Amino acid sequence: MASGLVVCLIAGLLSFAATWLVRRHASRLGLVQAPNVRSSHSVPTPGGGGLGIVLGGAVATLYALPAAPVPVVTALVASLALAAVGFWDDRAPLHPGLRLLAQAALWLLVVLASGALAPLAPAAGIPVLLLLAGLVLAGVYWINLFNFMDGIDGLAGSQAVFMLLGAAALALAGGATGGEAAGLWWLAGIAAATLGFLLLNWPPATIFMGDVGSTWLGFVLAALALLTVSWGWLSAWQWLILGAAFLTDASVTLGRRLLRRERVFEAHRRHAYQALARRWRSHRRVTLLFIAIDVAWLLPLAAWAGGAGWPAAALAYAPLVALALLAGAGAPEPGS
Rank of each mutant, 00 (worst) to 15 (best):
V85H: 05
P93W: 00
R281V: 10
G166D: 11
V37L: 12
P46K: 05
L82Y: 05
A75M: 14
F208S: 05
I293S: 07
M209N: 09
R278M: 15
W202N: 11
V264K: 01
G330Y: 03
L299G: 12
L131G: 12
A316V: 09
V77A: 15
R263S: 12
A331P: 10
S230I: 07
L217D: 11
E266G: 04
W304N: 14
R269L: 08
G4Q: 08
G335P: 04
L240M: 14
A167F: 06
L184M: 07
S15P: 08
R38Y: 01
G139N: 10
L227K: 05
L298M: 09
S39M: 09
I190W: 03
G213C: 06
W186M: 12
L172K: 00
R256N: 10
T177A: 13
R99P: 07
V70C: 11
S114K: 08
A331Q: 14
L299C: 12
Q238S: 07
L76H: 06
L170Q: 09
S235D: 03
P122A: 10
A156F: 03
R284T: 06
A250K: 03
L82A: 07
H283L: 15
G57C: 03
W107I: 14
W20F: 12
L108V: 00
A272R: 05
L51F: 00
A308G: 06
W297G: 09
G213Q: 07
L298V: 10
A308N: 03
L217F: 04
I152A: 02
A188G: 06
L80M: 07
A60E: 11
D150P: 04
S158P: 00
A275K: 06
R99K: 15
L98G: 14
L288Y: 00
W107G: 12
L217T: 13
A64C: 04
L195E: 14
P96S: 05
R257H: 03
G218I: 12
H283V: 15
A267N: 06
G97C: 12
W142F: 15
S15G: 14
I143A: 11
E266F: 00
L240F: 06
A168E: 14
D90W: 00
S27G: 15
R270F: 02
R279T: 11
M149L: 12
P319C: 04
L130P: 05
L234C: 08
